[in-house]
């Protein structure tokens, strides 16, 4: 969210909701059950169920980023090897300029910030870009 606020005047953002990573009927996470608002969902079997969870998410976090939902064919997930989470940056021509690693361990918004900072300048109140992140970001 902070990254979006910092760079929304320079770049567009799109969140794409894909199949759940830790639904209770698959690889459930105890941490989700301990969450004060109980983030427990089964893996959606219909588009209506998927849309409902996406709306729960955006309402709970007052999520401001533009939002799209992968349909039940999982076409976006398959095309971008996105599961469980991944970041990309497309350039103005629609080419991939940055491809992040698989989450959660290689999901690194700092790399996106570094890419944007190199292109548009650093935003002072954001997290500083590291040299390593700049090197890893595909520029």
């Amino acid at each position: 969210m902070k990254l979006y606020e910092d760079y929304k005047e320079h770049a567009d953002f799109l969140t794409i909701y894909i199949r759940e990573a830790h639904p209770i009927d698959e690889w459930r996470m105890k941490s989700n059950e301990k969450d004060k608002d109980d983030v427990c969902y089964v893996q959606p079997k219909t588009l209506e169920q998927r849309v409902a969870i996406a709306n729960d998410f955006t309402k709970r976090f007052k999520f401001a980023l533009p939002f799209g939902i992968d349909d039940m064919s999982n076409a976006a997930n398959d095309a971008y090897a996105a599961w469980p989470e991944r970041l990309y940056i497309l350039d103005e021509m629609g080419r991939i300029s940055y491809k992040g690693g698989n989450g959660p361990f290689k999901y690194d918004p700092k790399e996106v910030r570094a890419w944007l900072a190199q292109r548009f300048g650093e935003v002072k109140h954001g997290e500083p870009a590291t040299t390593a992140a700049l090197q890893r970001a595909s520029l």
Binding site: H10, D12, L14, L47, G103
Partner: peptide, 28 residues
Amino acid sequence: LVALDGSSRFQLRRELRGRPLVLVFGSF
């Protein structure tokens, strides 16, 4: 992609508006 209203659809590349586009994939 499907919009949050559950009925309208749009193309990912439609979101390209002459600026870099950051894609954030994930779930709840």
